[in-house]
Simulated scan of single mutants.
Amino acid sequence: MNTEKKWALLASPTDEAQAAADALRSQRDWVELDDAELVIALGGDGFMLQVQHAMLEDARIVPVFGMNLGTVGFLMNEWRTDGLDERIARAKRFSVSPLRMEAETIEGQRIKLPAINEVSLLRETRQTAKLEVSLNDRVVMAELVCDGVLVSTPAGSTAYNLSAQGPILPLGSGLLALTPISPFRPRRWRGAILPETASVSIRVLDAVKRPVSAVADQREVRDVRKIDVAIDRAAALTFMFDPEHALDDRITMEQFVV
């Protein structure tokens, strides 16, 4: 009886990742993603997000163990071919609930997209964006003049959010970061830390004259009038990490990088 677990192997289209996939294919029998109990993903952080988004779209979510063959590799493990079964057996699993963005465009189109790292609003022209920010259906900032604003999960708090001077959120903290991007008015507002139960709504003031786009991780919606953002608890994703390079420890240690 064959008791080998059903693993799928996915690799980014780069030469390095494809060569690594060739090195692994001879080690075991691999299955298609639709039949897999676990995914081995070879590439960088961008490819990891692509894999997770594909599973969200198919509504079939399995754990993913990534190995870095990209640039930063914050969401990935070290690439090596030896001892993969043992690494999987020892791996720490982290559940990450994505954000769900519902955007309404100027023309009235409604688009729903998930975001594992962050949802960001960004000005489309040289003119600053003017935004109204609401929290749980209550206006908390009548006018934010800025280049943009983002809502970040703990898993994404060390990415774009950190570059925009937002706070690092420990994994499992139950928090979200609301971070302005180059705020002009109020100039000294540096954002807010919110409970993950919060629902954030952002309305674009003068959306025609000062157009704004919304980006959910890597997917963009142009000319938005309003977005609503909240955690999607029904779509939890599972990331797997070597114990010595676990995601929670990486996020914590980013606070000490100078």
Rank of each mutant, 00 (worst) to 15 (best):
E102F: 08
T197S: 15
N136G: 10
Q27S: 03
L9P: 00
L38G: 01
V257H: 12
D242F: 07
N77L: 09
I88Y: 05
D35W: 15
L169C: 01
R233K: 14
K209I: 11
R90K: 15
G148Q: 06
R80Q: 08
R203H: 12
L75F: 14
F94A: 02
V119W: 12
E86S: 06
S97W: 09
N136Y: 05
L171H: 04
S120C: 03
V145R: 08
P180E: 01
L56S: 00
R80L: 14
Q27F: 07
L84T: 00
L150M: 15
R219I: 15
Q27E: 09
G46F: 07
E16H: 14
I88A: 01
W30R: 03
R60L: 12
E196K: 05
A214T: 04
G108M: 10
W30V: 03
A230D: 06
P180M: 03
A103G: 01
E132V: 01
D249W: 10
D35S: 10
R210F: 11
I40S: 00
R250Y: 04
A177M: 07
G66Q: 02
I181D: 00
G191Y: 07
D45M: 03
D223Y: 10
T238Q: 04
V215A: 09
D242T: 12
F239D: 01
P243Y: 07
A89F: 05
V62W: 06
E124Q: 15
E37W: 05
R25W: 09
E107D: 14
N2Q: 12
R185T: 07
D58V: 13
P13F: 12
A192N: 10
A54Y: 13
I251N: 01
D15N: 13
L9C: 02
Q165Y: 13
L69C: 01
L9Q: 04
L205V: 03
S201M: 13
E143Q: 14
V257N: 15
A54T: 09
L24Q: 06
A23S: 14
R219P: 02
D248W: 12
Q218S: 13
G191H: 05
V221D: 00
T71G: 03
R222N: 04
P167F: 04
